[in-house]
Design a protein around this nucleic acid. Structure first.
Length: 803
RNA sequence: GCGGAUAUGGCGGAACUGGCAGACGCGCUGGACUUAGAAUCCAGUCCGAGAGGGUGCAGGUUCGAUUCCUGUUAUCCGCACCA
């Protein structure tokens, strides 16, 4: 064995060998493990060291599972529809599929450098008609179940992408993709009824081993609230206004009502005197972007001229219209209790409306309120409820109102239906035909896929129509139902469509009869470990859960949650920023692989910091890992002590290492796994130097543990140590618990909690003997002091409290 | 505004259920080898001469606090007029 660590030769050699003889073989006698990465968009820029982080992590887990005797599914594929390829096409007039294919080739080459155990026979590509046939098939099933429907409504419109956006893509009023300010546009669009699954999407979060942060983001996004709907009659009309409130206990304090400008009753009830001003206000509100509506904190509004009648006490409440009430949440109308809601309070102050306090803070005398009081307290001015605790009234009010026939208990969700159609070219065509007689008709399943046709111009339009609308021969078709002349739907699906179910396709990627066979799904799914960035917390991850539940309901899959465990790796930053071409701070793995080798880069990706946190990239850090691998290599190259017996010291060190590496790996604290390796290696070299060398077992344990992390060098060293079969068949080392028990321990000895010395004692030594020895040890340091208390925690500490 | 996370040497970070703070690595300093450099190896490296002090800041509980409690500051993230 060469004493120089020639990583490029070694890595080339084993990569070729593993391509011929994969270390991960399918074997149904073994338990399964499905370890998945969030599949990449094949961008023209290629991968940087930040991408590597997640891929290395999932590969280490996968190889670890192989060593543990699992058959592992660890696939890779391409989320290849989307805007960058399309924009490239527009600029260069080259079909997006061409740019996509060359990008895939490039990224695939880079992925090979990682030496992950991907099964390339299972590669999927969302833009492949054989793949999107099933993306379209799922849409048709949703349509048949009434989960996909058309609706005209004001939608988030990104003027830069020239495309509508889902609510999830327009948080903070900004386009998730390009950062442009989102405006509203009234359009007919395809919607998916994700709200029908709100409760299950919320409830089933409990089943998942996911980061709490992601679960919380999803549950906040779903936004369940409990409350009541209450009906107010409108005086001098036949109309009734239903309001939604989470605080029915404050009903006696309602002094006015507010409708959203879009509420259907606004036109009907506004009096003639108020009409002109109202129309002006509503028009203005409709032109405001959603950002302005939030940032213009000053309350605005117009009086309708009408009064609602409080169903509890008959009080008259003036009805106003204001844009601080949202049209699409609750009923689009609210009762206002300025004493106990800050927004209502501000509105009341601005327009000089009455404020009636109905909850008194306990132990406090009333005075004029300077802000809304939202805490608990005692009910006042509230008829039957006077004297009750507000929290109790809140709980009892909905049923009370139900009994009186003036309201009902309800729940509400912030989640809205998913705006699903896009006015862009590079996506899956929505498989629908519009017939003048039959309406929207799904393309029959035996005619799928509806293949994306070629167009002259990929350019998006401002009209809200997709570029596909220009291809007459494609658009004009016959109705599958009645045969009449009909037109194809020209919108495409959002990029999320293909990624909402790709994890199912990997289990059976070439199936032409179904999206995947029951047998294959049963064998591999659901995903045991899903590794990816936090940015998909409410987008991809919510959509994929929704898809899975729909497929479960129609019997296509037998589980209703796709990802049992989720791990979000942190970002790699450079100069404190996310790596991006425009910032010019991209660190390419290609150069580092060339200079240090794949194994060093893999190990450094893990060593750079705790995997769940963002970490700053430091090129000089990889030197440390490279030196480490050289050190191990040299030790193995110079290892001749093949007959040395194991010492107690090494036995202990070895078992401790196996224990620690295993528990740390299970906890995914990979940075400490690497430091554990270094510590053990230092110890091993130290012992070998001071004794007659070390036993083979102690060295081989290290090599086996290293295998998932630095597979090539581990394999080479393993063979060098005299093995004919791969290290990945050697199994994961087990630790011997009995060897971890020690007979003597070194304990720190403290005076008043400050460490003064340390003492080696028998583990089971009696307390008074230990304390006597410790006192003797401290000797002079205790002189002239009175010992007030003596503390001995076996195995931990000795402490004397003195005066 | 609401909610969540984080704060430890020059740097990245470690420390199990409260028990020797700074493991491991980077960087740096000195030395060896070399004509010289690179590489490698050896020694040192929280501050302080020392007593002692030290985990964002101020308190508290405890024999003992990076760890628990109260308050506070800074940074980051999520949501944002959701009634």
């Amino acid at each position: 064995m060469n004493s120089r660590y020639e990583f490029s030769q070694i890595e080339k050699k084993w990569r070729a060998e593993w391509e011929k003889n994969p270390i991960n073989k399918e074997d149904d006698k073994k338990p399964k493990y499905y370890c998945l990465d969030m599949f990449p968009y094949p961008s023209g820029t290629g991968l940087h060291v930040g991408h590597w982080r997640g891929y290395v992590l999932s590969d280490v887990i996968s190889r670890y599972k192989v060593l543990q005797g699992y058959q592992v599914l660890h696939p890779m594929g391409w989320d290849a529809f989307g805007l960058p390829a399309e924009n490239f096409a527009i600029k260069n007039n080259i079909h997006p599929s061409i740019a996509t294919a060359s990008n895939i080739a490039n990224v695939k080459r880079q992925l090979h450098d990682i030496s992950a155990i991907y099964d390339w026979d299972r590669e999927v590509n969302t833009t492949d008609p054989n793949y999107y046939k099933w993306t379209q098939w799922i849409f048709v099933q949703m349509f048949k179940k009434g989960l996909a429907y058309e609706k005209e409504m004001p939608l988030n419109w990104c003027p830069s992408c020239k495309c509508v956006l889902a609510n999830e893509e327009a948080t903070n009023g900004v386009c998730e993709r390009c950062g442009a300010t989102v405006t509203k546009k009234n359009l007919r669009q395809w919607m998916l009824k994700i709200t029908a699954y709100a409760e299950r999407l919320l409830e089933d979060l409990n089943k998942l081993d996911w980061p709490e942060k992601v679960k919380k983001m999803q549950s906040d996004w779903i936004g369940k609230s409990y409350g009541a709907e209450v009906e107010f009659a409108v005086k001098d009309t036949d109309e009734k206004i239903t309001v939604y409130t989470t605080r029915p206990d404050t009903l006696y304090g309602a002094t006015f009502m507010v409708l959203s400008p879009e509420h259907e009753l606004v036109k009907k009830i506004t009096t003639d005197e108020q009409k002109e001003e109202m129309e002006k206000y509503c028009f203005l509100a409709s032109t405001k972007s959603s950002v302005d509506r939030v940032t213009d904190k000053e309350k605005t509004g117009v009086f309708t001229g009408r009064y609602g009648i409080n169903p509890l006490n008959g009080a008259l409440t003036p009805i106003w219209v204001s844009d601080y009430v949202l049209a699409d949440y609750g009923t689009g109308a609210i009762m206002c209790v300025p004493a106990h809601d800050q927004r209502d309070f501000e509105f009341a102050k601005k327009f000089d409306l009455p404020i009636i306090q109905v909850i008194k803070e306990e132990g406090k005398e009333g005075g004029e309120l300077t802000e809304a009081y939202t805490g608990d307290g005692i009910m006042i001015n509230s008829g039957d409820w006077n004297g009750m605790k507000a929290s109790e009234a809140k709980a009892k009010a909905p049923l009370y109102l139900e009994e009186k026939g003036i309201g009902k208990k309800t729940v509400n969700y912030k989640l809205r239906d998913w705006v699903f159609s896009r006015q862009r070219y590079w996506g899956e065509p929505i498989p629908i035909v519009h017939c003048p007689h039959c309406g929207a008709v799904p393309v029959p399943e035996d005619q799928l896929p509806v293949v994306l046709p070629n167009v002259e111009s990929y350019k998006p339009t401002d009209t809200g129509e997709s570029p596909l609308a220009d291809i007459d021969e494609w658009v004009n078709t016959k109705c599958p139902c009645c045969g009449a002349d009909a037109k194809r739907e020209t919108n495409t699906m959002p990029q999320w469509a293909g990624s909402s179910w790709y994890f199912l396709r990997y289990v059976d990627p070439h199936n032409n009869e179904a999206l995947a066979s029951k047998e294959a799904l049963d064998k591999w799914a659901p995903v045991d470990m899903y590794v990816g960035g936090i940015e998909h917390a409410v987008l991809h991850l919510l959509y994929a859960r929704f898809y899975t539940k729909v497929l479960y309901d129609i019997g296509a899959v037998l589980f209703d949650e796709p990802f049992l465990k989720l791990f979000n790796q942190g970002m790699i930053t450079k100069d404190g920023n996310k790596m991006s071409k425009s910032k010019g701070n991209v660190v390419s793995p290609d150069v580092l692989v060339e200079k240090y080798g794949c194994d060093s880069l893999r190990m450094y990706e893990l060593f750079v910091g705790p995997p769940e946190l963002d970490s700053e990239w430091d090129d000089s850090g990889i030197d440390g890992v490279f030196r480490y691998l050289n050190k191990v290599w040299k030790f193995v190259a110079g290892y001749k002590d093949k007959t040395v017996a194991a010492t107690k010291e090494m036995e202990f060190a070895k078992n401790k290492m196996i224990y620690e590496i295993t528990t740390r790996l299970e906890a995914l604290t990979m940075n400490t796994v690497v430091s554990g390796f270094m510590e053990y290696t230092n110890k091993m070299i130290d012992v070998a130097k001071n004794a007659d060398g070390i036993d083979k077992e102690s060295l081989e344990a290290l090599v086996r543990l290293l295998a998932p992390f630095t597979p090539h060098i581990a394999e080479e060293m393993w063979r060098e140590l005299g093995h004919d079969i791969t290290v990945f068949e050697a199994g994961w080392p087990e630790y011997d618990e009995s060897k971890l028990v020690v007979s003597t321990v070194e304990l720190p000895v403290q005076i008043n909690g400050k460490v003064k010395d340390s003492i080696e004692i028998d583990k089971d030594e009696a307390k008074d003997v230990v304390l006597a020895k410790a006192k003797e040890l401290l000797g002079g340091k205790l002189e002239g002091k009175t010992i007030v208390k003596e503390i001995y925690v076996p195995g931990r500490i000795i402490n004397f409290v003195v005066k």
